[in-house]
């Protein structure tokens, strides 16, 4: 009898393996299949196979094509930046809201919170899309060719390399009276380095590989102020995955936070201390307030998700309850 049970169990396990669903996961990594994100997603395959999903990875170095292939259902899952993920989930894409995530600890709390089963209802968009996890990629900073340009007033009239597909970026540049120079992730650094623009915004990871120190030279610098928090999101065509897969995926991806954050820490440490420009506390408070107003405007215009903004405000206030925004509760 025991033998029979063993044989049956073995047969069932073989059957389960044989029935593993084959799914295609398209990954945008600026460094392609050699990049750290792609490497992290190789480990994600191990998680997926345990959910009976056999994932095949494909690298993309062009984010727009990755997004288009996902939309056209050429990919069952995709990894995109938060800004590109907007059409697939307003709630999660609002994580990249301007000035909304000031520290890595707020980002960590956020990722843990939205990965819990209670948050599942916010991570699904209609019947089609589901966010299967969020990976941190670090704060976005302003890179300036002239370090005397360290106030919003001085940025007025300056040329800023702006991601044209990202509506909030366009609004923000217009808000401060600077001029937009349409750019993308592949050409903004060239424009900054050759002086076609005065200012660019980018995460720390861009500094060394894209040689942004060339544009900074001896006169420029990087403002030590988190404009937004870059993240990568795993997006799923919901119906292509087993019931409950998305939730398990979010929990697994949340567990990759420290590994991903270690890359951010390493890249940030690679920027010389003298390159950083520290802003006076009064300016920081002024800009926090300015960005809050922009967020509220964009929320009212339907660009940002109100629930996510509220969640982010509460997480910021848990860390810093004395802030004025914690009394006003405008978000």
């Amino acid at each position: 009898m025991r033998k029979l049970l063993c044989v049956t169990a073995l047969a069932v396990s073989q059957l389960t393996f044989a029935a593993a669903e084959e799914r295609k996961f398209c990954i945008y990594d600026p460094l392609g299949a050699n990049g750290n994100l792609y490497g992290l997603m190789k480990e994600y395959r191990e998680f997926a196979i345990q959910q009976n999903v056999n994932i095949h990875l494909r690298a993309y170095t062009d984010e727009k094509i990755a997004s288009d292939d996902f939309k056209a259902e050429q990919c069952d899952a995709v990894m995109l930046t938060g800004a590109r993920a907007r059409p697939y989930g307003k709630f999660a894409s609002t994580i990249e809201a301007i000035g909304a995530v000031p520290t890595t600890s707020v980002m960590r709390s956020l990722v843990n919170t939205i990965s819990q089963p209670g948050a599942a209802k916010y991570m699904v968009t209609g019947d089609r899309y589901e966010v299967g996890g969020v990976i941190p990629a670090g704060p976005i900073y302003l890179f300036v060719r002239d370090r005397s340009v360290d106030t919003v007033e001085e940025m007025s009239g300056k040329r800023i390399a702006t991601l044209e597909y990202d509506e909030p970026s366009v609004k923000m540049v217009n808000h401060i009276g600077a001029s937009i120079v349409p750019s993308n992730s592949a050409n903004f650094s060239g424009k900054f380095n050759n002086g076609s623009v005065d200012i660019a915004y980018a995460p720390a990871i861009a500094y060394s590989p894209l040689e942004m120190y060339k544009g900074i030279g001896t006169k420029g610098g990087i403002l030590r102020y988190n404009l937004a928090y870059l993240d990568f999101q795993v997006l799923l065509h919901k119906e292509r995955f087993p019931e409950g897969y998305g939730q398990k995926s979010r929990l697994y991806v949340a567990g990759l936070f420290d590994k991903a954050n270690a890359f951010v820490t390493q890249d940030t440490a690679g920027i010389p201390e003298t390159t950083w420009i520290d802003l006076p506390k009064a300016d920081v408070e002024k800009y926090n307030e300015m960005l809050r107003q922009v967020r509220i405007t964009l929320r009212d215009e339907g660009v940002y998700d109100a629930t996510m903004l509220t969640l982010l405000r509460k997480l910021r206030c848990r860390e810093n309850p004395a802030e004025g925004e914690c009394v006003e509760n405008l978000e």
């Binding site: 460094l31 050699n34 990049g35 750290n36 490497g39 060394s208 590989p209 590994k259 890359f263 690679g270």
Partner: peptide, 20 residues
Amino acid sequence: VMSDLRAQSVVNVPKDIAMK
């Protein structure tokens, strides 16, 4: 640079070497 990326950057080879 490529090998270090495949090793998940444990050696910390400066990435700007690639462009140079």
